[in-house]
Design a binder for these strands. Sequence first.
DNA 1: TAGCTTTCGTGATAGCTTCTAACTGGAACA
DNA 2: TGTTCCAGTTAGAAGCTATCACGAAAGCTA
Lengths: 224, 224
Amino acid sequence: MATTTSTTTPRERYRAQIRAEIKQHAWEQIATAGASALSLNAIAKQMGMSGPALYRYYLNRDELITELIRDAYRSLADAIRAASGPGTDLGVLAHALRRWALDDPQRYFLIYGTPIPGYHAPDDTTAIADEIMTALLDACPPALPDAPASPLEAHLEEHRAWAADHPAPAATLRRALSFWTRLHGVLSLELAGHFTGMEFDAALLFAAELDDLLADAGGPPGPR
Amino acid sequence: MATTTSTTTPRERYRAQIRAEIKQHAWEQIATAGASALSLNAIAKQMGMSGPALYRYYLNRDELITELIRDAYRSLADAIRAASGPGTDLGVLAHALRRWALDDPQRYFLIYGTPIPGYHAPDDTTAIADEIMTALLDACPPALPDAPASPLEAHLEEHRAWAADHPAPAATLRRALSFWTRLHGVLSLELAGHFTGMEFDAALLFAAELDDLLADAGGPPGPR
DNA sequence: TAGCTTTCGTGATAGCTTCTAACTGGAACA
DNA sequence: TGTTCCAGTTAGAAGCTATCACGAAAGCTA
């Protein structure tokens, strides 16, 4: 039996484990009380040690939250990539997104929720966001060549730096943006509970919006 | 010159003025640092009095925030109503919504941002939400009678308690929901800064989404 | 006008938070 | 077997929410 000889020192392994344990408790707190209620002190007590001990592992509360945001982004990108493939369409991606969001709403809001005015997301999250956008563009069906370019598409033709390394035409960029904003619109309101008073099934609204997005690709009229 | 004889006592008037002043400082704090950073202590100091004094005017921090949420809802409803009228279409409403949102992003997020798991919005906000939804339904163009009913519309036909006092058909309800979720999707991501990296103009995306919503009403194909 | 009552603002205090500083004990390493 | 490094401790500063008891001021009423 080959015990995997790691290149890390015992101290490093211990450190990594404690850091992971801290994050796990942090996620539990966030899921039940939201990110604003996250308390380093409470985490320390749950782990059976005194408050200041955690500062050996995270510089401060912000650094921990930043890492949680990074992990959330990473997790979303993984979920999207797991659903992506050579023949995937937007529908598969959409349902992967929805399942990921419903799986832990507060994790979703950590990325797409209320921004803190002063706070800036770490740089590597933009790389992950790019990765997600690329998967999205890949899944977009090829645009119809005969459709007239809208003002937005003309604008995107000249402002496509965010998709510079993707060959998709402006019509596809616009489709990807609509996919993103429309599904986020439904998901965000659903997760925030804005539909609770009304008795309809948010899943059907999500599906209908998705249908519209897919229908606009093929030939038929699309609206209803 | 008739000095308006008010029915309120001096004490009540003073109280109302201080409460308003507190709220004003609260809005400033929220605009610059977000709602989670709102500090009663800091407000008291800004007003030149000691911390506990504020508890004469608001039971606690939550009650102040609740009132701010109520005011935000009220303000949104007023903005929508001001834009509404006998002949208004969805476009006018959409731009009123967008202007209101851009005017104070944190106020928008106070309503539509990350929900606090434990917190429940006050009951009267649902009444205001209904008012907004009614204005929205009123502005929706009459649905085409020949369009086939989608699964969502069939579902809405049976779950329309939230629009019980409005004669609009299911197709219109679906249109209103799409209007809400799509525009919120664009606005929310724009205000949260998720478009900042990409260089395109969010206003054009908003306009394009609005065009799609309006086009689906009239006859022509709609997509592009 | 005089006195009573209500209410406003204060300082003190408890308990929570983040975060720093100094110290101790033990594990890893040479 | 030392020596070094680091984890975790307690103490403490500064901030927060929130409660309490007190004094003072303002309004209401006789």
